[in-house]
């Protein structure tokens, strides 16, 4: 039985529990109330409020911030399904503002322009659950340590190109698989390495002051935590993943899903559900595309149905992009 007292008033249980209720579903990016209604009608499990869909952010450039609170409120009022909203990586204040508006889950997202070059938000400090992107096993572990309630692939948003999402699923899965063959000593080694990114700032300070790294203690490197405390917690996360043979929370695919077949592929690869961004509202017929992606996610192995619902659907124009333009590296 779960030890409720140790779960900090059960906040973690409520946050991860919320994520569990979205399993098998499609979360759709929307920029206004009208789009939110189309998504709800299509059977979206939740809508994601953001300022501009990723392909527009990509095309227009500039700084991408959280959505205008006025838009968020409109979307909250327009639908009965949960509303998520994107927050810039490390932007504590945007996160608190969105939480106060009543948003049901935050997405600390690389699609927006990052606010903090060193740290992600300490998600344990928020009552609202947060989903984070991860390209690799170490990234997923760090986000879980920071209190993410759900993990998604980063993929490459706004491209309509599925290759990066597939890359991230395969990479994280391989990281989990290989844990099985590692001894405790080896687990300690990878723990040290995975925890290292929390001392990046301290090492820069050391270089600034002494002209070389490694000259300063690793105390108070992340929200009052010492490096040792962090690596102990990270070790626990890794052990749990090893035991479960999967991430200990809900795991969605995101970034580049543009067709029903893409959504089906993500489910076939073992994902718990999908996020669809530009793929719906940049297609020829958003309502039809939204319906089809919901159907494909629920029936991802019914290939006759997939063929039927994909017939005559025109997807968004896809992009094959260079390394330098990738949002996932944020």
């Amino acid at each position: 039985m779960l030890d409720l007292k140790n779960m900090k008033f059960g906040d973690e249980l409520l946050k991860r529990g919320f994520a569990k209720m979205t399993k098998g579903g499609v979360v759709m990016d929307v920029t206004n109330a009208e789009q939110a209604k189309i998504a709800e009608k299509a059977g979206a499990v939740s809508v994601m409020a953001l300022e501009r869909v990723p392909s527009d952010i990509r095309a227009q450039g500039g700084v991408a911030r959280m959505s205008d609170p006025l838009k968020v409120k409109e979307i909250l009022d327009a639908v009965s399904i949960p509303v998520m909203a994107k927050v810039r990586i490390g932007h504590l204040s945007e996160a608190s503002i969105l939480e106060s508006l009543g948003v049901d889950m935050l997405d600390e997202s690389e699609v927006l322009t990052p606010a903090d070059p060193f740290y992600h938000i300490n998600k344990k400090l928020y009552k609202v659950p947060v989903v984070c992107g991860a390209r690799t096993f170490p990234e997923a572990v760090r986000r879980i340590f920071e209190g993410a309630a759900m993990i998604r692939t980063k993929g490459e948003a706004g491209t309509g190109n599925i290759i990066e999402a597939v890359r991230h699923i395969r990479t994280v899965t391989d990281g989990i698989y290989i844990l099985n063959s590692l001894t405790n000593d080896e687990l300690f080694k990878i723990t040290e390495n995975i925890s290292k990114s929390y001392v990046t700032l301290r090492e820069l300070t050391s270089e600034d002051l002494y002209g070389e790294s490694g000259k300063m203690p690793y105390n108070n490197v992340y929200y009052g935590m010492d490096f040792r405390e962090i690596s102990n917690e990270i070790f626990k996360v890794i052990k749990e993943i090893k035991r479960l043979k999967r991430l200990p929370l809900v795991n969605f695919a995101a970034g580049g899903i543009a067709t029903p077949a893409d959504a089906a592929l993500m489910m076939k690869m073992g994902m718990d559900g999908v996020f669809v961004g530009s793929g719906i509202f940049k297609s020829q017929d958003p309502q039809k595309m939204a319906n089809a992606i919901v159907d494909a996610t629920e029936n991802f192995e019914d290939y006759k149905l997939l063929g039927d619902i994909s017939s005559g659907l025109e997807g968004m124009h896809g992009l094959d992009i260079s390394e330098i333009e990738k949002l996932q590296n944020r």
Binding site: L13, L14, G17, F18, G102, D104, V128
Partner: peptide, 28 residues
């Protein structure tokens, strides 16, 4: 959504007829 949004989700111990005390998790 009778209790509000996710922020209003809660856990409460309830006493169920024929079952007894139970930690009930209410999510939206």
């Amino acid at each position: 959504n009778a209790y509000g949004r996710q922020i209003n989700s809660f856990i409460q111990s309830i006493n169920i007829e024929d079952i007894g005390n139970f930690n009930a998790v209410f999510i939206r």
